[in-house]
Design a protein around this nucleic acid. Sequence first.
DNA 1: AACAACCTCAACCGCATCAGA
DNA 2: GTCTGATGCGGTTGAGGTTGT
Length: 187
Amino acid sequence: MDPKTNQPKSKENNRGAWTAEEDEKLAEAIEIHGPKKWTVVAAKAGLQRCGKSCRLRWLNYLRPNIKRGNISDQEEDLIIRLHKLLGNRWSLIAGRLPGRTDNEIKNYWNSHLSKKKEMMDKQTSSYSTRDCAKSGGRSVVEIGGAEMKKEVVTAINERGVECSKVNFNVDEFFDFSNEDPFNFGLG
DNA sequence: AACAACCTCAACCGCATCAGA
DNA sequence: GTCTGATGCGGTTGAGGTTGT
């Protein structure tokens, strides 16, 4: 283990794209040991890959029920709205989109939506009232906890859903485990 | 056909946090 | 309380594909 990078020494490990054979071995090991103890899984799979790499491969590619490509308009709209509220908290956003991974959403945002948003921002630099009501009045570029909470509460208030949550916890609010994926509390 | 420029996305990196010893 | 290893996250990179000239 390299103490600086927190990674195994690279000469001991494969790097780069995964092969079908590696995928198969990994899937087998996960079936036996579960998708949790990644160092164990990596070792038992007999792969020259670190646990971290195995975890990423599982989450982004091998996991069951994973959707790939073809992000729908509905999903895109949801990503935009969630990003407005949450900023670059990709894992939270991904939690709202069943079958989508944080990596995929992050990539999609960086290659498609960031540009789209930039263009829209330019077009609406004099921000219309309608857009203000829709978004909570401003876009958040850097999101710290307090800033984000404020933003979410503002958005909620704008929609007249909830006005009294002062001690708002965004992580509790965005506990997505049991909810309709396309209804995140804003109506 | 050849090359350059651009785009996409899988994978890696670095850091923060957590859990167990 | 401290140390160490594991896990999870967001940022970044680079190979391969696509499009334009």
